[in-house]
Amino acid sequence: MHEEILITARSNPPVDPVMHIWGWEISVYLFLGGLTAGIMFFSALMLLLNRDEEAPFSVNRLSLLAPVVLSLGMATLFLDLEHKLFVWRFYTTFEPTSPMSYGAWILVLVYPITLLQVLSTLRSGYPLLASLLTGTRPERVLLVCERWRRPIAWAAIPVAVALGIYTGILLSAFSARPFWNTGLLGPLFLVSGLSTGAALIALIARRHSEKRLFTLIDAGLILTELVIVALLLVNLSTGAQPQLDAAARLLGGDYTAWFWGAFVALGLLIPLLLEAAEIRATLRSLALLAPVLVLVGGYVLRVIAVDLGQETTWIDYGSEFNTELLERLH
């Protein structure tokens, strides 16, 4: 027997009794950050490939969602901070060893670029909105952005990839959390982010050719994601003891149903089958279900990653301390 227990009360919330420093705020942010990356990426890509006819929604209207979705994510990120008044401290320094510092500065790049993407397509995508500016000085800005729409799209692609992949690298850089500590998390979050972006387009685009194109793209991304998930499991289950403990949580432990049921089956396999059926035009009536499942699956992945990851550890003490005992002192 080898048993290690705390014999003085260490009841530091949110570290004890089980670490729960990050909750839904971070899962939502990571999900919306990935979705923003997908939106930026595909609106830029479709514009660069001149798909105005085939995918008019992606080229002209989609980019407006990027700043909206990202702002929602930034709001929940802000809610998570414990020392909110000092949020500006992210921007008085750059810390080259901290992925979170890279993330803070990437977000500073993302906003103006999404704004430029919106402006460069405003007249073709939202003519009513653009007409409000007719004859005013800002209209000149629109015209300049339109002329530069290809360079703007070229700039959006690497920034979108950086945004999508950093959310995964952020977690994977924590050597103290064995579940996160794998380089596969960056690619996994990037592909998942792009997949949710493609699903969103398949969900709201009106033109059939565009729905079909993004159903096809999403199916490819889901296949890629399945491969990365398989590699992640191989990586965990061939690791050292802390990784094996984390793998056991997914392979029979308390996260098994969430991981296999809600993420792998509902979020990846079933939408992949539905999309395959849709591409072969046999199951039109379920066309809306696949992208909805992909979006839900993308969020479930972030929840599992954040919740399970922070609980995995190198050192795990038993504790009999009951915080209710403290309350009785009053």
Binding site: V15, F86, V87, M100, F174
Partner: peptide, 22 residues
């Protein structure tokens, strides 16, 4: 340094000894 800390809790996740607190 409390005057630089945003309370993002990255350091808590980074500590293998769970030695930090809010």
């Amino acid at each position: 340094d409390p005057n630089k800390c945003t309370g993002c809790k990255a350091c808590i996740a980074a500590c293998p000894y769970d030695a930090r607190l809010v």
